[in-house]
């Protein structure tokens, strides 16, 4: 039996306090009456009201969501293809270069990725706007998707696919009926990861956007550069709220799926 010593308790408490207190303060001051973000002057929701009146902010939020939906969806398709090729593709010409190009964007400083893509877009004369941000986000997000999906592909039992093929499935049918349902959770988390990365990205979007398309992070960055403002706190609170609900429900769903899967496995063993 493991024992949780006093030292463990203290380090966990301090650690989680460090992780969460800044966000709690941020949320608290979004409900502050005063414009000063440091002095408490009573409860108010007026900053949320002002946020809803802020046309430019809403416009930026819409652009951001649009970019995130498109780029994460394309990235999920391309990333899953890339993962399948990496794990099941066997040998082909330029495989090392391919895997290098998948892993490199994960560790590449964003300033370099952004700069290089901008230079490409200018080089080929593509007007910068929503399209260029989608292309840029898709490129780095597909690498994350491919890593998430390939780790799932690498661990699952290949004999299931082989059984389907033996029983007369075509390759495509085997993929659709056997492989895809098994890797589906990884594909979904890959999509979520890609979506979040796109929503969150400031640096690459700043390089690849044009005057017509301002995303929320760009807007937030230019506002907070000058100082703190309760309106940004209100916006942050909404975003933290969405993420919290999303993460908690995702973990509940995956927990339930795991329990169900275990039960089914036990059933199968019992009947066998």
């Amino acid at each position: 039996m493991k024992r949780l010593s006093a030292f463990n308790v203290v380090s966990l408490t301090l650690g989680f306090a460090f992780l969460y207190i800044p966000m709690l303060i941020l949320i608290l001051f979004s409900f502050n009456e005063s414009k000063l973000v440091t002095v408490w002057a009573g409860f108010s929701t007026k900053w949320y009201g002002e946020l809803m009146q802020n046309e430019a902010m809403l416009q930026a939020a819409w652009v951001t969501v649009k970019v995130a939906v498109f780029s994460s969806t394309i990235a999920t398709v391309l990333g899953t293809m890339a993962a399948y090729v990496m794990v099941r593709g066997g040998r082909f010409m330029g495989r090392t270069l391919f895997s290098g190009m998948i892993y490199a964007p994960l560790v590449m400083p964003e300033v370099i990725t952004g700069l290089s893509l901008l230079l490409l877009f200018i080089g080929i004369g593509l007007d910068r706007g929503v399209l260029t941000i989608v292309l840029a986000h898709t490129t780095f997000a597909m690498c994350y998707v491919s890593v998430v999906v390939s780790s799932r592909l690498a661990t699952f039992d290949r004999s299931l696919e082989e059984a389907a093929l033996d029983l007369g499935c075509s390759q495509a049918q085997a993929f659709r009926l056997v492989t895809l349902p098994i890797i589906a959770p990884a594909v979904v988390s890959g999509w979520l990861l890609a979506f979040t990365l796109s929503l969150d990205d400031l640096v690459i979007a700043s390089f690849t956007t044009g005057p017509a398309a301002t995303t929320l992070p760009i807007k937030i960055f230019s506002a907070v550069r000058l100082g703190v403002s309760p309106e940004i706190n209100a916006l942050s609170t909404i975003m933290i709220g969405i993420v919290t609900v999303g993460v908690i429900s995702a973990s509940l769903i995956s927990k339930r799926a795991l329990v169900k899967q275990r039960r089914e496995e036990q059933e199968a063993v019992r009947t066998a």
Binding site: M23, P217, I220, M239, I240
Partner: peptide, 9 residues
Amino acid sequence: TSFLIRVYA
């Protein structure tokens, strides 16, 4: 949670 928001906090 947004990186930018956590830095801003």
